[in-house]
Design a protein around this nucleic acid. Structure first.
Lengths: 195, 195, 195, 195
DNA sequence: TATGAATGAGCGTTCATTCAT
DNA sequence: TATGAATGAACGCTCATTCAT
């Protein structure tokens, strides 16, 4: 019953992003998403279990793709400090370049119910692991202080980036997000690096 | 609305915290809050405009009180570094000591409708200002690097703390939040301090 | 418990007329009437059984007074044709001179519940009797055709006047109501008079 | 709204008439109408905007049909006097033959909110126009006095008929309404006809 | 596969009335 | 007499999901 691929599967997810970005989470009815995707209401349920499944699939698809891109980019970067810079830059650029997705993931989907948020949290873990690996490798190579708790460092890095993007959207996206990368990375580096 | 203070006003807010923490935002009906506060449904509307007003008042009362406590505590602390430590500690302790409030403000109220979220954002600004003042005074006294963008520093500090508390709740509150204060403060300080 | 006289009794009735005329039947809450009458909500219930009782008392007082005025005026008029003219004129003038009362009795009170409307109907019967008496005396004196059913004549007279006033209010009271008296009376007279 | 016609559209309107006639305007909940129409509550909203729309549609359908019937019948009648007779007869017969509709339109719908009443007034205008045309043609053909104000004549005719039907219902429909047609028409004719 | 008409559970809010003071 | 805080019943409407076609 649930087909996780196919033209319509993707059309529905893209429609969901558009509708949620345009109308907000609370006005993103299944019927509206169906109309945007140019399918019948019932057709949605041939591709998704329920509405929650649309939302989590949306996040999984978009976030999964981004994580793969980040991992790929990190492969060609050696120093942990530079890797961190790459991650900060990609995180900010990714959402700046796709404002609809930014609105959906940073603002709207956070209003979803606990179940959806839990699944989103699980998906995010993969991203947090990427951050963890950068920190750990930095500690192993001696450029980051060894006694820093990786989990705390991860929260600083992710929490700061997340708050930065959310704040950028809430304030009308009036400034360049990417241009903040250097300052943020600088702050992280000072916080982490060995004396 | 009869009055915005009084025994029942507080009873209703406390009941709202309890009910939302216990049943979740979406199952926190007015009738349930009324029953928990031991008043009739209609009595709620003698003290609050509507349901949204309960939620925003809740946040305003609880956050307002906390901000006042923080500001008071900061007065008796001289160095910006120590002030930052005080803030980190109080932020974590405050929510660790009131897990119901933590669940409500970190998890449940984030699902609320745009209007409530907007008011919450406005209230949070006052807290962000407190953070800003610490950073600025640190820069003025020469202990924090002067070129750091205050807004970015603020996002690091608030974003990290917020992510830390949310993560603590989402993972079942299985560890001590307060005990992370030192490590977090250490990270902030390294990030901010002048060389 | 129910006192049908007294300063406050009249103040409440007058307040009810004002509030209903100003805000409409559906927005004329007891609390609003109490405030207009400058008494507490509870005080209303020292003078009236319930809200319905305010409405029916209002109608009874106002209509009773008008009926007495009409009856008095008719005493000094001999011919039934002239009496009919007096009634038509007084009916129209009465409501034209008290637009608030006109709005309340012609428009707003008609939205009341069946029970209130029934009582209003009973009170109106006294007015219909006045009409009946004019018609009957006209038939007895030979100026009105004897075979006309009094009840039908009464419905024509009251129905026409009622429709005229209602229509006048609904269309914004933009013309003189009293000036229509002659034409209406003329129509009635032609309808009723013996050949 | 799916469509303004169809089996269910009519079933819902007929159910509304039944429920309102049986339980009164104030106890005619949407759920009750739905059950009577043998559809789900939500189905109502596939055919009607909201509850008000049910009520106005009801009046529009029923009154519209009646007006068309009257207009059709008037076509095959030449003299204005006879046309007036036809109208009086049809008006009374129409409501006598459908007592449920009579109760709804004469009693219950008059308690409806201002918006519904406004729409009802607009629909009634078409009926008043029919009356106007009869009066005017009677004046043009010289059988009705030319100086009679059409608007006043219309108010007499409609006001009398309306009062007659309302009174008939309020008094328990204990006599024949149609049998009053001749006497009413007679009264109208004497009132209107040229000497 | 695809459709879309039909379903029905769920809840914030008002306001006439009461009653302890 | 007078007050006014407290009560609690009552209901229109939305929208995710189903299922006959």
């Amino acid at each position: 019953m649930v087909k996780s691929t196919g033209e319509k599967y993707e059309a529905i997810i893209d429609a969901a992003v558009k509708v949620i970005a345009r109308h907000g989470y609370h006005h993103a009815q299944v019927a509206k998403i169906a109309r945007e995707a140019d399918v019948a209401d019932g057709t949605i349920y041939l591709y998704f279990e329920n509405k929650d499944d649309i939302l989590t699939s949306l996040f999984r698809e978009k976030m999964g793709r981004f994580i793969r891109e980040v991992e790929q980019a990190l492969e060609s970067v050696q120093s942990p400090a530079e890797q961190l810079k790459t991650l900060v830059e990609m995180h900010l650029r990714h959402l700046e370049e796709d404002p609809e997705l930014a609105i959906v993931t940073q603002i709207e989907l956070r209003q979803s119910n606990p179940l959806v948020r839990k699944v989103i949290g699980q998906i995010l873990k993969k991203y947090l692991n990427v951050i963890d690996r950068i920190v750990t490798s930095g500690q192993e190579s001696g450029v980051f202080r060894p006694h820093i708790d990786v989990k705390i460092a991860r929260k600083m890095i992710f929490g700061t980036l997340d708050e930065t993007v959310t704040s950028w959207i809430m304030n009308g996206r009036k400034y360049s997000l990417t241009s903040m990368a250097k300052a943020i990375h600088d702050l992280f580096l000072h916080g982490l690096k060995a004396d």
